[in-house]
Design a protein around this nucleic acid. Structure first.
Lengths: 129, 129
DNA sequence: ACTATAGTTAGCTTCATGGCTAACCAATTA
DNA sequence: TAATTGGTTAGCCATGAAGCTAACTATAGT
């Protein structure tokens, strides 16, 4: 229970389709009507509209109809939210790498100190630059 | 033809599932065995293994088996590639916003100059801070 | 050698996704 | 008012994704 409430599910799912990613990329450059958006694609309009709808329910795109033409624009919050997820993961990942590097440095230091004590033992194989 | 060659398809698709996102988050903190990864989830192992497999074919995760335990680790390139996509889109989006802002500023300037010529006309309703 | 552990393979169900056609509104334009 | 344009609704189909159980393999521990 309590599923599908996470917007990331829908955002990533929406972006997993190349057609929809192309639509988003197009909309980054500015708003457009459904017809303009659909034009480059060799696809029946109803199929294309499904993609638009997926993008709308994911929160990536908003649209409004005026007269008989529906204009779509990007709604950047969803995009930013997804980008943010990556940044958070990267932060965790990099923090871990830093700790690891610190650990390696500590080992290296210890080895050097040991080597200084009883000189000229296996101090070869530097590695790790 | 020539489809499914884009790694972004697979990466975003993989990340659209909360279970898989949780796995990735867990692996950001360090490598783990399949069993350790599966533990928090109330799911049959074969189902869970499918998720692992999806993550591997997407390039987000690598694993190797030693003895009877398979150890999984993050392979960050795929993650970075996806993050990069967002950054590129945001760059486009922001460039457009800048242009728009410049345009608005230009309009404002022109209006001010016009107002300076024939003073005290409708110079109210500033808006846009 | 036996048992338990850690994954794996095979095969099944159910439901979502992505595509289509055909028919249908509702604004414009002629 | 008639025809065109732009989008929408309804319904169909094929494929793939996500879950399960049951049975199996191979290593590690006793």
């Amino acid at each position: 229970m309590a599923n599908q409430l996470c917007p990331l599910d829908q955002v990533f799912s929406a972006l997993s389709d190349p057609t929809r990613r192309a639509i988003v990329m197009r909309l980054c450059a500015g708003e457009a009507s459904v017809g303009e958006l659909a034009d480059p694609f060799d696809m029946a309009l109803p199929s294309f509209m499904k993609h638009i709808h997926v993008l709308e329910t994911s929160g990536l795109v908003q649209s409004e109809k005026s007269g008989r033409v529906r204009t779509c624009r990007l709604s950047p919050d969803a995009l930013l939210g997804a980008e943010d997820w990556f940044q958070r993961q990267r932060a965790i990942w990099e923090a871990r790498l830093d700790r690891f590097e610190a650990y390696v440095m500590k080992l290296k230091k210890e080895k050097e100190r040991a080597a200084a004590k009883r000189p000229s033992r296996t101090t070869k194989k530097k590695g790790y630059e």
